[in-house]
């Protein structure tokens, strides 16, 4: 298994290099001008100088490799230095990936935004999994019961209604009409005592629920289908014929088998947490990664967008690998060789 993981990681390197090139090339080809947002009074010569200072005078290939070096070597070194307090080599003059809009290193921007995203989006994913699995199990075990029908109806809603609609709906109901919950997420809020904790919960409630509904709808459907598949298997009858309790039959024998594909689906969904829920963050003004990406796109901040997109790509590749490894751990029939 370790060898398999290592091999997959090695294969991931050329894959990621190819992806990085495509991302870089696509964004580079896109018609955008980093100086377009500057005041019109700035003369063209100055604009040209700004462009040159951003490195745009260099040929495409040179820029690509420089970006690659900055992203793959300089930034990780920098993060390492910040975490450990060491000084590795010439850290003063090391070139970092700089945002065109803010002139600050892209990594710093991301690190600043990540906690909000992880809290809101990550929490919503955890909640989604925690409610989706039991719902899927019960729906399948009591197929066509009232519980199942209601579950099916709600997950159909969660599945088909986009988050910008449910988000706005919740804001209208709970912020505008009832005034119970804040409609804007206050990032500067610090949890100090019970009251501030309650406020934190309140402001997280709506964005978390909107995302949890969407995710739970999907996962509970997978769970239900997988349970139904397994409930009809012969081994379930064997388990019953042994005189096991129904609880053991369902929660040990059937659930264990049903979780195999569902865990994969859950693992594959994790990168979307880091990607941030772009729309939901936008609606609730959570200044997380998703919102950062939108700002980057609107401001033609190519380095920022390149870096973020590439980080998403890495996460997707990594979690694909993790999903495969978990699959192998859960299913003894899978052999890695």
């Amino acid at each position: 298994m370790a060898r398999y993981a290592l091999r997959r990681l090695l294969i991931a390197i050329p894959t990621l290099l190819a992806i990085s090139f495509i991302i870089f090339a696509l964004l580079d080809l896109a018609p955008s001008d980093p100086t377009a947002n500057l005041p019109l009074t700035i003369p063209p010569e100055v604009r040209e100088k700004i462009r040159l200072s951003l490195g745009l005078g260099e040929p495409f290939v040179v820029r690509y490799f420089k970006w690659l070096e900055q992203f793959m070597i300089n930034e990780p070194l920098n993060v390492l230095e910040q975490w450990t307090g060491w000084t590795i080599g010439d850290s003063e003059n090391r070139l970092r990936v700089l945002s065109w809009a803010t002139r600050s290193p892209v990594t710093d921007l991301i690190v600043e935004r990540l906690p909000q995203t992880l809290w809101v989006v990550g929490m919503s994913y955890v909640i989604a999994v925690l409610i989706a699995v039991p719902i899927g199990v019960i729906s399948a075990y009591r197929q066509y019961s009232l519980f199942d029908q209601i579950g099916t109806f709600i997950s159909m809603l969660g599945f088909s209604i986009p988050t910008f609609f449910t988000g706005l709906l919740l804001i209208v109901i709970f912020s505008v009409w009832l005034g119970w919950l804040p409609s804007i997420y206050d990032t500067t809020h610090v949890v100090r005592d019970w009251d501030s904790f309650v406020f934190q919960v309140k402001q997280m409630l709506m964005p978390t629920m909107v995302l949890a509904l969407a995710n739970a709808s999907q996962i509970s459907r997978f769970m239900r289908a997988s349970m139904l598949d397994n409930l009809n298997q012969d081994y379930v009858r064997t388990a019953r014929a042994k005189g096991l309790r129904e609880r053991v039959v369902v929660l040990v024998h059937v659930l264990r088998n049903s979780l195999i594909p569902v865990v994969t689906v859950i693992a594959l969904g994790v990168p979307t947490i880091f990607g941030g829920a772009i729309i939901t963050e936008q609606i609730f003004r959570v200044n997380g990664i998703g919102q950062l990406l939108i700002i980057g796109i609107e401001g033609a901040d190519i380095p920022l967008v390149q870096t973020l997109t590439f980080i998403f790509a890495i996460l997707i590749v990594v979690f694909n690998l993790i999903a495969d490894l978990i699959y192998g751990m859960l299913d003894p029939r899978i052999r890695y060789d």
Binding site: R237, T238, A241, N257
Partner: peptide
């Protein structure tokens, strides 16, 4: 079930749970 009357099913290929060891399934009853 399993104590007074033991049952052997028709299809041995699918009648055992694939994700548990034979020992586990044998020890259960």
């Amino acid at each position: 079930r399993g104590r007074g009357i033991g049952f052997v099913f028709q299809d041995p290929m699918t009648s055992l749970n694939p994700v548990f060891t034979v020992g586990f399934q044998l020890m259960e009853p």
